[in-house]
């Protein structure tokens, strides 16, 4: 029996020892906001935060997450109030097809939690593991820079 906290809620679930966090989230917990683009740790679409650190959920196994705190895209908003990153992504069109968005948002959140006032180079570097085929990354980098300017209480 695996016990973990996802977005502040506690879950207990049976798993196979070779089941990935991605599969647990999507198939056992019904949290399909986390996406898959390769399941080999190459595209960044499944990025979630594990105890605050961005990880590729498709490469994380159950014994790495017992009693861990996982944050997924479903946990970014505070109730009906969106996270500044979500507001900025919407305003600037940083989400087009939306398939990379969950991973992008969580990589960006990890950056802003660590470095509240990043340079554009730091943003580009922090997102370099997340592939996006729609935007050309420009609006995404702009959105992260914009979110960094949000009033501190907002995030």
């Amino acid at each position: 029996m695996l016990r973990l906290r996802v977005n502040g809620e506690t879950y207990e679930t049976l798993t196979e020892s070779n089941e990935t966090l991605l599969e647990i989230l999507r198939e056992r917990l019904g949290l399909t906001g986390t996406k898959h683009g390769c399941e080999l740790g190459e595209c960044g679409a499944c990025t979630v935060l594990l105890d605050g650190t961005p990880v590729l959920a498709c490469l994380v196994l159950p014994d790495q997450i017992d009693d861990a705190e996982v944050t997924t895209v479903e946990g970014l908003a505070d109730g009906s109030v969106l996270h500044p990153l979500q507001e900025a992504f919407m305003a600037l069109g940083a989400s087009q097809c939306g398939y990379c968005t969950a991973g992008m948002l969580l990589s960006a959140k990890a950056l802003l939690d660590e470095q509240p006032d990043p340079t554009r180079e730091e943003i580009r570097a922090a997102l370099a593991g997340n592939v996006c085929r729609c935007t050309g990354y420009a609006s995404i980098v702009d959105a992260v820079a914009l979110a960094a300017k949000a009033p501190k209480g907002a995030r």
Binding site: T32, G33, A77, G93, G98
Partner: peptide
């Protein structure tokens, strides 16, 4: 203006084929 489905996209609520 934001796309009309923007909130669903940034909250992970959009249901894609494999979802």
């Amino acid at each position: 203006m934001p796309r009309v489905d923007a909130v669903s996209k940034v909250t992970g609520a959009t249901v894609y084929a494999d979802d």
